[in-house]
Amino acid sequence: MRKTRNQLFLAALLTMAAVAVLFAVIPMALLTVDAITALLRSWGVLPGIGAVFLNTLQVLALVLVLTIPLSLLVSLWMYECVKGRVLVRMQRFMHGFSRVPAVLLGLVGHALIGKNSALHESVYTISAILTIMALPFMIARMDAALRAVPERYLLAGMLLGGRRTDILCRIVLPQAMPGIVRGGLELVERILCEATALLALMGAVMPNQVLATELFRLAWLGRKDAAVLAFLLMATMMTIRFFTTRRWRSEGGEQNCRYNWW
């Protein structure tokens, strides 16, 4: 009883602290974006880049919110409930489907939406197409992360009397977390780089979309400030990749496996 009360108190405290940090950080981030945009505008460089940047963040947030929970549930279902040949075939299907060219997915989106240009430009349509593209990739990554947890950890948990869901929540998921986080960062990379599917979806080069399509538009028009945006995009992707390939502490192995479920 006391332990539960303590845990609830900690959870409430952490939630309030997170909300406070978000309230402080988000306006600062928006102010930074506005300041950089105003500075660039005064130099005549990349007009409208602030709107593009916010669109990109919006699309990124939507895709992450849609993709990660769904892919986690599907990969947990595959881990728990699917065995044998069906599992192998599903894994191969996920790997194969994640290699379908982005232009085909953009074509399907374009065909489904028809001539409605408002839908073509809508952030929700873009997010839906990117989610469909990202789901098989993310499911394959999470499945690999869950299966990378050594079998002996599960056996030890079962021998100590743990139930299946306890072992899943307290042993498998924490051990698989570095792989899942790495998959999430790779997903962020894919979303930020994706231009082909969005151009095929929109059926035209429109202004003020996401960073990758805006860079394509500037380069297509022969604008010199395309180089600035290309450099910024390149630096962002290299920074994200640097964090993706970091050796996470939990990969130290057995010393980090905690049997604290009782």
Binding site: L215, M234, I240, T244
Partner: peptide
């Protein structure tokens, strides 16, 4: 890090 550069940047 260099392998993370997007294709659109290479096109530019």
């Amino acid at each position: 890090c260099l392998s993370a550069v997007p294709a659109v940047v290479f096109g530019t």
